[in-house]
């Protein structure tokens, strides 16, 4: 879907991006992670030509982005930023309709799309006429993401979209985004400095440092084999094992059997939750249950630790 080839970009003589090669497959959820100043936002903004590279190529669906008019390109790519940037003089509905209006869709089609998106993001239809100033932070960012998805782009660029939200709202929106990504199959490139967020959401994690790629792999592989100390620091030295467990669903450690004395755990939990529950209840075996209450089997401490 996207390929970056040896892109470089300097600001005032300082290289923000110093020769990056990166490719993101269709349907991937790619998290760019690094400390501030690592070049992750610049890299993201090169994809929709908000920043032009000094050298190198950016390919979007195998076409060099320089061959596309910037406005046309941006209308095909959704864009979400941390400060949301809703147009304060427009209603919520008109904000969501911004790109379809730029693309000159006809009015009934726009109205239908706005209704559809508000439903998808669980926004009260009464908010359609509200002013952005009256929204809570979580609502505003829902509208921001809805605006980005309005013209049904194949690619969504997100620059720390949940960074300014409280932990509870952030977790809700993360889960919603994951659900929407799975339902629609969008390709997402996501900038964050929060490793938990990256591990929870992404299928591809790219660690950047001083404008270079340090490691580019799946979350599980990264937890198994951190490339260097920086990646180890980002992953957290002490609870790396727990984070890795969190990536595995409890179903993957399921073994057949029955133990009436073992406490239960829902089947959609992850292995870290199972381990936590064992420690809490001082047991080494749990019964895994389906949502309807059916007993699916057991999970043993030794299976969790064995990996």
């Amino acid at each position: 879907m996207i390929r970056l080839e040896q892109v470089r970009r300097a600001f005032n003589g300082r290289e923000a991006v110093a020769g990056v090669d990166l490719s993101v497959a269709r349907g991937a959820f790619c998290a760019l992670i690094g400390k501030s100043g690592s070049g992750k936002s610049t890299l993201l903004r090169m994809i929709n030509r908000l920043v032009e590279p000094d050298s190198g190529r950016v390919l979007f669906e195998d076409a060099d982005v320089r061959s596309l008019a910037p406005e046309q390109l941006r209308r095909r790519i959704g864009y979400v930023i941390q400060s949301v940037g809703l147009f304060p003089h427009w209603s919520v509905a008109r904000n969501i309709a911004a790109v379809p209006a730029l693309l000159q869709w006809d009015r009934p089609m726009i109205a239908a799309r706005v209704r559809e998106l508000m439903a998808l993001f669980d926004l009260d239809p009464a908010l359609a006429k509200a002013s952005p100033a009256s929204l809570s932070g979580g609502q505003a960012q829902r509208v921001g993401v809805a605006r980005a998805l309005a013209a049904d782009p194949d690619l969504l660029l997100m620059d720390e979209p949940f960074g300014a939200l409280d932990p509870v709202t952030r977790a809700t929106l993360q889960t919603e985004l994951l659900r929407i990504q799975r339902e629609t199959g969008k390709t997402i490139v996501f900038v964050t400095h929060d490793m938990d967020e990256a591990l929870k959401l992404a299928t591809q994690v790219v660690v950047l440092e001083r404008g270079r790629v340090v490691q580019d792999t799946t979350p599980d592989a990264m937890l198994a084999n951190p490339a260097d100390d920086l990646v180890r620091d980002l992953l957290g030295r002490e609870d790396r094992g727990l984070r890795r467990l969190a990536l595995r669903p409890v179903r993957s450690a399921l073994r057949p059997g029955e133990d009436p004395s073992a406490p239960t755990i829902p089947a959609d939990s992850d292995c870290r939750a199972a381990l936590s529950r064992m420690a809490e209840l001082a047991v080494s075996t749990l019964t895994v249950t389906a949502p309807d209450g059916a007993r699916l089997g057991l999970v043993h401490l030794s299976d969790l630790v064995a990996g």
Binding site: I81, G85, P88, L102
Partner: peptide
């Protein structure tokens, strides 16, 4: 006009005139 609004306007593909 907040920079974030201007950035968002550019990011969703508005031309300079728009």
């Amino acid at each position: 006009v907040p920079d974030s609004v201007r950035d968002a306007a550019r990011g969703i593909g508005m031309t300079r005139g728009q």
